[in-house]
Simulated scan of single mutants.
Amino acid sequence: MSQSLHGRRVMAAAGANADDAEVWRWFSLLMQDRRVRWCQAHDRWFVTVDNRHVATEPSFDEAIRRAKERVQQQRSIERCLR
């Protein structure tokens, strides 16, 4: 049983690392193209992508993750409308 639990932990850690890498690659590409902006005000991080406000969260990490999620959702909706 402990090997099974250990295996699940290893798989979960690998999945989390892959998710982290994907988020920060996405952020880096946007930053390189100057498409993302952020600022902190009143204990919140505000993130804008392509001049559209997409996230407001208490931590920078959460704000970037939420921004990625919302941008991808918006792109999915736009693809469906075509």
Rank of each mutant, 00 (worst) to 15 (best):
S2E: 02
Q3I: 12
Q3C: 08
Q3R: 11
H6P: 00
G7T: 14
G7L: 06
G7K: 13
R8C: 05
M11F: 02
A12C: 05
A12R: 15
A13I: 14
A13H: 10
A13R: 12
A14L: 14
G15F: 07
G15H: 10
N17P: 00
N17S: 05
A18V: 14
A18R: 15
A18Q: 14
A18D: 13
D19N: 12
D19K: 15
D19Y: 05
D20P: 02
E22C: 08
E22D: 15
V23N: 08
V23P: 05
W24F: 01
W24D: 02
R25Q: 13
R25T: 15
R25M: 14
W26E: 02
W26T: 14
F27E: 03
F27R: 06
F27C: 08
S28F: 09
L30F: 09
M31I: 01
M31K: 15
Q32C: 08
Q32H: 04
R34D: 06
R35V: 08
R35F: 04
R35Y: 04
V36H: 07
V36A: 10
R37C: 06
R37M: 09
W38D: 01
W38Y: 04
C39W: 03
C39Q: 07
Q40H: 04
A41V: 12
A41I: 06
H42S: 09
D43N: 09
R44F: 00
F46E: 03
F46K: 03
F46N: 04
T48C: 13
T48S: 13
N51C: 06
N51G: 07
R52L: 07
V54R: 15
V54L: 15
V54E: 13
V54P: 15
A55M: 12
T56K: 11
T56L: 05
E57L: 13
E57G: 09
S59C: 06
F60G: 04
F60L: 14
F60N: 07
D61F: 00
D61M: 02
E62V: 10
E62W: 06
A63V: 13
I64T: 07
R65T: 02
R65F: 00
R66K: 07
A67Q: 06
K68A: 03
E69F: 02
E69D: 11
V71A: 03
Q72D: 11
Q73N: 04
Q73L: 09
Q74E: 12
Q74P: 00
R75D: 05
S76C: 07
S76Y: 02
I77W: 01
I77M: 13
E78C: 12
R79H: 00
C80A: 06
C80G: 03
C80W: 02
C80I: 08
L81F: 00
L81I: 11
L81P: 02
R82C: 10
R82N: 11
R82E: 03
